[in-house]
Amino acid sequence: MSALSVARKDFRGARRSRLLWAAAVVLGLIAAFAAYVSGTSGQSADLVRRLFRLLTLVLAVLLPVVALVASYLAIAGEREGGGIKFMLSLPNTRRDVFVGKLASRLGIVAGGIVFMYVAAASVALTRHGAFPAGVVFGTLVLSLVYGGTFVSIAVSLSAAAASRSRAIAGAFGSYFVLVILYIFPVVQIPTMVRWVHTTLLGADPNPDLYNAVRYTSPFLAYRKSINLVMPADLRQTVFRSSLPADTSLDTGQVNAALPVYLSDEFSLVVFAFWVVVPLTAGYLVFERSDLE
């Protein structure tokens, strides 16, 4: 298994990167701080559940940055720096390099997330004496999937980019397109789609369509997927405009009232798309390119 040897070498090198350690420490401090200031009134297990819901809101914005920064140079850096010449002079194939790099960067990002969770969970446990395992492990798994999605995107972009600068542009661009455009108030993707749909095409507004377009972002998929592991009273209502007027927002009925392609469960399909499509495209481009 030479993908394993590529991964092991990459991991060994990354372990000595001060930047990565600094990032892990900052993430851990954020988590510990959030756990420390989490409220004091109310039932303790519920407080901890709320803490982890808050943590996922932070991670929704932060995790893509961490994953992209940790992975955007995975292959482009080797190409520009010449490390890939050694890798491919030894009995490795391009697939080994791609798979090995992906595995190593997934491991690094997963390590950061787990570290953050350990920090948050241990501080919360000391302060509130509660450990709601379902919510903690549920959000942990979904955060790993979300982080993994962005690692896949970044490694794919890195494999397709011929140089460091293009890889940077790709990482920055994907964060902008997949995250910023969904949270920044003025230039949101759904607003643009609505404008094209109603103004340019002269059609009647169709909230389901705009919500479906919004749902293509892993950012929203993550937020929706968290509902899958939260008790009914802690779920977030994301696509309000697609709900029938008489739906009660306070019950666990929201998800059932939405069309299947806007349901919480559909987030897993969105994740799968963002893992499979970039990886396939990135690998094919890398496999065919000339490595100068």
Partner: peptide, 22 residues
Amino acid sequence: EPAAIRERIGVLPEGYGFDDYL
């Protein structure tokens, strides 16, 4: 069959770089 070839050869490539912390 690049991998099978790489099993049998030793290469000092041009334009390499030792850029890992190793």
